[in-house]
Computed example of a mutant assay.
Amino acid sequence: MELYLLRHGKAQEHATTISGDAKRQLTEAGKKELEVIAKAIKNLEIQVDDIFSSPLIRAKQTAEIVKKHLKNNKNSIKIWNELKPEIDIKNTIAKLSSLKPESSVLLVGHEPHLTSLIATIISNDSSLDILLKKGGLVHIQCNVTKNTVSGSLRSIMTPKQLKKLCR
């Protein structure tokens, strides 16, 4: 499996409640930055079979922006509760392991959930220190078996690096 993970873009300031946090939207600057990042993803010729997003608004908005720029953008964005920031990564891995091993997918989510997921997949150690900035993109080539996903890190790209691909 070709697995791409994208952290949502810059969002409104933190809310004091979880339900308020779920409704935080991308800022205008965050949307503009993601438009450029999405073009970079297109320039990298990344093709995915499916896009899976956290149900939180800022992640869904991020997924929509990226989807517009992908070549195969006819598929709908699928919402996974397993990408919510508070969900145990074991649930996310179980969901990933249910996908076709030959698929190429993009997950759009949050911190620290995404870096724990990345660390677990590449090292089986969720505490591995990985920095994924808002709008950052990770590529992992994965081996998928029943309830397990392991893989090799292929790249971590910061928003700054991605934006340079559009100049």
Score class of each variant (00 low, 15 high):
Gln12Lys: 08
Ser19Val: 08
Ile156Gly: 03
Gly109Ala: 06
His113Asn: 10
His113Gln: 12
Val149Pro: 06
Lys100Glu: 07
Lys90Thr: 09
Thr62Gly: 03
Ala40Tyr: 07
Ile130Leu: 14
Ala59His: 12
Val105Leu: 04
Ala29Leu: 11
Leu131Val: 14
Ile79Asn: 08
Asp21Arg: 10
Ser97Pro: 06
Leu5Gln: 02
Thr120His: 11
Val138Ile: 07
Ser53Pro: 12
Asn72Pro: 00
Lys60Gly: 03
Ser76Trp: 01
Lys133Pro: 00
Leu114Glu: 11
Ser123Glu: 02
Leu44Gln: 11
Leu117His: 02
Val108Cys: 02
Tyr4Phe: 11
Ile57Thr: 15
Tyr4Asn: 01
Gln161Ser: 14
Ile41Ala: 03
Gly151Asp: 08
Gln161Thr: 14
Ser98Ala: 14
Ser152Lys: 15
Thr115Leu: 05
Lys90Gln: 10
Ala22Phe: 10
Ala94Tyr: 14
Leu114Cys: 09
Ser103His: 12
His139Val: 01
Pro112Asn: 04
His139Gly: 02
Leu106Tyr: 00
Gly136Phe: 03
Asn147Phe: 13
Thr62Leu: 04
Ser19Lys: 11
Gln141Cys: 08
Ser53Gly: 08
Ile130Ser: 03
Lys134Leu: 01
Leu165Ser: 09
Asp49Cys: 01
Ile140Trp: 05
Ser127Asn: 13
Ser155Arg: 07
Asn143Gly: 07
Thr158Arg: 10
Asp50Phe: 14
Lys90Trp: 00
Thr92Met: 07
Ile140Glu: 05
Ala38Glu: 04
Asp88His: 13
Gly136His: 07
Thr115Asp: 09
Asp50Ile: 08
Ala59Glu: 05
Val138Glu: 05
Leu34Met: 15
Leu83Ser: 12
Lys78Val: 15
Lys146Met: 12
Glu28Tyr: 05
Ala22Gln: 15
Asp129Ala: 15
Val66Phe: 05
Ile37Leu: 04
Ile89Tyr: 08
Ala94Thr: 15
Leu162Tyr: 12
Leu107Lys: 07
His110Trp: 06
Ala59Leu: 12
Gln161Pro: 13
Ala15Lys: 13
Lys133Ser: 03
Asn73Trp: 02
Gly30Pro: 01
Ile77Gly: 06
Met1Ile: 02
Lys164Gln: 14
Arg58Glu: 04
Arg58Cys: 03
Asn124Cys: 01
Gln61Thr: 02
Glu2Pro: 00
Ser104His: 02
Thr92Gln: 07
Leu162Pro: 11
Ile18Tyr: 13
Leu165Gly: 08
Lys31His: 04
Ile57Pro: 06
Thr148Ile: 10
Leu128Asp: 01
Lys23Ile: 02
Leu34Pro: 04
Thr115Cys: 06
Ala38Arg: 10
Glu28Val: 06
Ser155Leu: 12
Ala29His: 11
Val66His: 10
Ser116Pro: 04
Pro101Asn: 12
Val36Trp: 03
Glu111Arg: 07
Gln12Met: 06
Pro85Met: 09
Gln161Tyr: 14
Leu106Arg: 07
Ile140Tyr: 05
Gln161Phe: 14
Lys31Arg: 15
Ser152Gly: 12
